[in-house]
Simulated assay, not measured.
Amino acid sequence: MSRRSRSDRWRALGLLPPLAFLLGPFLWLLASSLKTEAEIATADPFSAPDRLMWANYVDAWRIGSFGELILNSLANVAAVVVLMILVCAPAGYAFAKMRFRGSGALFYLLILGLTVPIQAIVIPLYQLLSGLGLLDSLAGITLAQVGNGIPFGVFLMRNFFRNVPHELLEAARVDGCGHGRILLRIFLPISAPAVLALVVISALGTWNDFFLPLVVLISPEVQTLPLGLVRFAGTYSTDHRLVFAGTVISFLPIVLLYIATQRRFTEGLTQGALKG
């Protein structure tokens, strides 16, 4: 065995403890979601269930109205992702390739939004949404989440667009293309990794967001999945099999999305957010 192979093997072995530490809670949750209530109370937490209780998921889905909650969350995520692309891509292009008075100061003023925690502005945000009549609505929570995500989205797209050769822009201008056509026909197609990274980050943050929906959404009919899960867990806190099954249902879709897009997501971050 070569020296490099031995080194790679030791690195892989060194990653096993943190991997076990990270995956342990998920494996425990998955195993517990397929056990009976008696097994959860008496058996080894990491033991395999005697019989796979898929009925736990059926019961949790039916009792917790997870179908409605997932539809609300999907509508919320789709709206946030679309608006983030519509706002951040043109803004990132403008800051990267267009020269206008005060562009530098405006960009850094926008980036200051990354340093302001949402909890610090929740009261004026609540009053603003109330004045607009958008409280207790998916439209209100969508606008709040888009506003909170714009600083990072613009930062990501602007840094990616800065690495696109300026000669492409000049050639398109010579051919008579305006900035809108240049963005749509040249910059967006070659910036697919950055756009995908923005989509995944926005989707992950929106799907898992608990604080803003807690402030804005009140009625159970419009609540998103994290809020519904907390309400469900509070109501059935003594029925652990249902709570565990509901928790798995809540994070499984977004985990599958990340697994499916992991390579392009990492590429987009590397080429965009980590380059100046």
Rank of each mutant, 00 (worst) to 15 (best):
S5Y: 05
R9N: 08
G14L: 13
L22V: 15
L22I: 14
P25T: 10
P25A: 07
F26A: 13
L30M: 15
S32P: 08
S33T: 05
L34N: 06
T36G: 13
I40K: 01
A41I: 03
T42K: 06
S47N: 07
L52G: 08
A55Y: 02
N56T: 03
Y57P: 05
D59W: 02
G64C: 08
G67N: 08
L69C: 02
A75F: 10
A75W: 07
L86D: 03
L86F: 08
C88N: 10
P90H: 02
A94Q: 01
R99N: 13
R99P: 07
R99F: 06
S103T: 10
L109M: 13
L109C: 13
L109Y: 10
T115D: 08
Q119G: 07
I121E: 04
I121G: 04
V122S: 14
P124Y: 13
L129M: 15
L132R: 08
L134A: 12
D136K: 07
S137W: 00
G140I: 09
I141R: 00
A144F: 03
A144C: 09
Q145Y: 12
I150Y: 06
F152G: 01
V154R: 06
V154F: 06
R158S: 03
N159E: 01
F161N: 01
R162N: 04
R162V: 05
N163S: 15
E167D: 15
R173M: 14
C177N: 04
R181H: 12
I182S: 11
I186C: 07
I186Q: 08
I186F: 10
F187P: 00
I190M: 14
S191M: 06
A192Q: 10
V195P: 02
L196P: 02
L198S: 10
I201K: 08
A203W: 00
T206P: 01
N208K: 04
N208V: 02
F210H: 12
V215I: 15
L217N: 01
P220L: 12
P220D: 03
Q223H: 06
T224A: 11
G228H: 05
G228V: 10
F232W: 01
G234W: 08
S237N: 13
S237E: 10
I249G: 00
P253A: 02
I254R: 09
Y258E: 04
I259V: 15
A260C: 11
T266K: 07
T270Q: 11
T270K: 06
T270S: 12
K275I: 14
